[in-house]
Design a protein around this nucleic acid. Sequence first.
DNA 1: CATGAATGAGAGTTCATTCAT
DNA 2: GATGAATGAACTCTCATTCAT
Lengths: 192, 192, 192, 192
Amino acid sequence: MGERSLQKKQFILEKAKEVFVEKGFRSVTMKDIVEACEISRGGLYLYFSSTEEIFLEVLAAESEEADDVFAENVGENATAADILAVFLKEQKKEILRSKKTLAAAAYEYAFANPKDTVLKKRFNDGVVMLEKLIKMGAESGEFYDVDARIAAKNVMYVLEGLKIASVTMGMSGETIDNELYMIMQGLIIEEE
Amino acid sequence: MGERSLQKKQFILEKAKEVFVEKGFRSVTMKDIVEACEISRGGLYLYFSSTEEIFLEVLAAESEEADDVFAENVGENATAADILAVFLKEQKKEILRSKKTLAAAAYEYAFANPKDTVLKKRFNDGVVMLEKLIKMGAESGEFYDVDARIAAKNVMYVLEGLKIASVTMGMSGETIDNELYMIMQGLIIEEE
Amino acid sequence: MGERSLQKKQFILEKAKEVFVEKGFRSVTMKDIVEACEISRGGLYLYFSSTEEIFLEVLAAESEEADDVFAENVGENATAADILAVFLKEQKKEILRSKKTLAAAAYEYAFANPKDTVLKKRFNDGVVMLEKLIKMGAESGEFYDVDARIAAKNVMYVLEGLKIASVTMGMSGETIDNELYMIMQGLIIEEE
Amino acid sequence: MGERSLQKKQFILEKAKEVFVEKGFRSVTMKDIVEACEISRGGLYLYFSSTEEIFLEVLAAESEEADDVFAENVGENATAADILAVFLKEQKKEILRSKKTLAAAAYEYAFANPKDTVLKKRFNDGVVMLEKLIKMGAESGEFYDVDARIAAKNVMYVLEGLKIASVTMGMSGETIDNELYMIMQGLIIEEE
DNA sequence: CATGAATGAGAGTTCATTCAT
DNA sequence: GATGAATGAACTCTCATTCAT
């Protein structure tokens, strides 16, 4: 595929993402995507051969973006507490945006493809990152000296709980703040 | 419908539950259920007119069962800590069984029916119950004196996180134990 | 079938007639009639085995009634002009009632059963009757001396036209009056 | 849809017309039309989405044709009597062809769709045309000086009567001639 | 006689996927 | 590369008809 078709592929992925955000994963048909892109049925098949294939690429593109955003917001001399704050703030944003997010589609995809490890990988990446952070914080005296792995997992589970709850039953900013405050309270040593 | 058909309705619900456990919610067709029950196409329509209708009845039956089990396991003179332990133990069981559970189907149903409040109701019921329990424990001096509502919600979010994580990426008993231990540690005052 | 079942048969025919009036012929199902009668599916089959069979009996009962009404309204010493007036008045009534009548259903039946001669018989009965009447009138000097058969047919065709027009596009009493007046004008010799 | 599909649409309409002529309106299924056209089930849905939609297009095409035929047969210097003769001749042809005509289907359609005014429009168009014609004839001294509207309606009702009678019970050319003769006799002043 | 649960054929409709242009 | 008409499989749903009770 030449450069021109790479553009088209990007275009399809963008439009497809809108469809997945709108309709989730399972109920999206090739027809939906064809219509969203205003291309021909056969045309779509030149680039992708199933909604699953498209979805996975959409998801991958999404992950990259998220990493970029995170990197942007972490300054050079950031402390562990700063980084944690940035991380949680990003999470809060995403949770609040859940109606405009791939979250529901991603869960649906995971249900339909129990063997696939995309979500697991994301989760583990989060755990690893937080584990490092917590160790960092402990060393610098900012955080309590807890089992970093277990604490990291706990944070991730709470976040998962908030995400799924947000998608399935909605959620207020205040509720999220309460939960994130509890997380920080459990990690950061408060100054007197 | 006479007695005979009530039995058949139960039978259909049982078989349908197996199908929902196996395939989730969205991908289940009336045909799937017809085949699982080994009845005729038209026969199923005598009892139910959509997979959604069937699913909601399966879910309702499920809830009743869960309540019964909980009631059975709470003795007369149980302390707040005892009841919390029973509750968390039941939750652990359910999380571990998640592959044989309606959890995934229920989430899929919620995605497909954002207006429906079945999951929300379940969640709120849990919050209310835990809130009472935490107040009880605080009064009896067993639990820390925290904001009961916020604490109850926190427990529920962690549990939601564990459930969805279990469904989408599997989970070991040990991991659950760690999380439940953290929950209990955050509530119960340890004796020295 | 004993007396009791004869009553039931009558009951079914009455209810079925309502259904045919309401829905025409083709779209009426055995289920519709079962529901209108509030009897069991199998029960209906004890008396009739198809909507067609039921419809034909409904139609036959209808014809008898119409004859009775006509006989009632024709006095002993009636002149030809009197009888014609009574006949046309009855026709007008029926045309105006067309929305509450079997007319549409009868036409639908005729379309679906081109071999059946029910409608033809009715038409011919009308022709024969009118023919006699016109001859009577001619002999008594009330009517013009025309070809009685042709004149009778003409009257019947106009009436058919009014009926079908009434069913398919509605019709005012005035319009009917105009037509009936033209019929009478064409037959009855006006006194100066 | 490009040019190629326009041809196919025409083809479907032609075949569908045969089906409607053969089976009427209500009993025609999408499957019937699919089979008559020898195309795939889904293929038909690319062009039409219900038998009703198809039928209405068939009917519309039919009307255009009829208008064309009428225009062709009316010469430049035609008198009112000439035009009336052409009109009645066309009507006779159509009535005689009734077994190969959409008439029955059109009536069935009208029964099934009481709100629809297709038949009414056709009837009114006829009335308007005849009204003009009768006025023309009266002015030129060819026709009697009657109430043109009432006379026009009368002609149309007789024609309706002939049509429905032809469809439901068959009709000979002679019978039609008698009726048409009576119509002409009622309008045209005979030379002595 | 009467019931109504059960069956299965058949109509409607939608899409993934292909293929001639 | 790109198109979009065409196909056919799969689902949904409704009834006529039967039959055990």
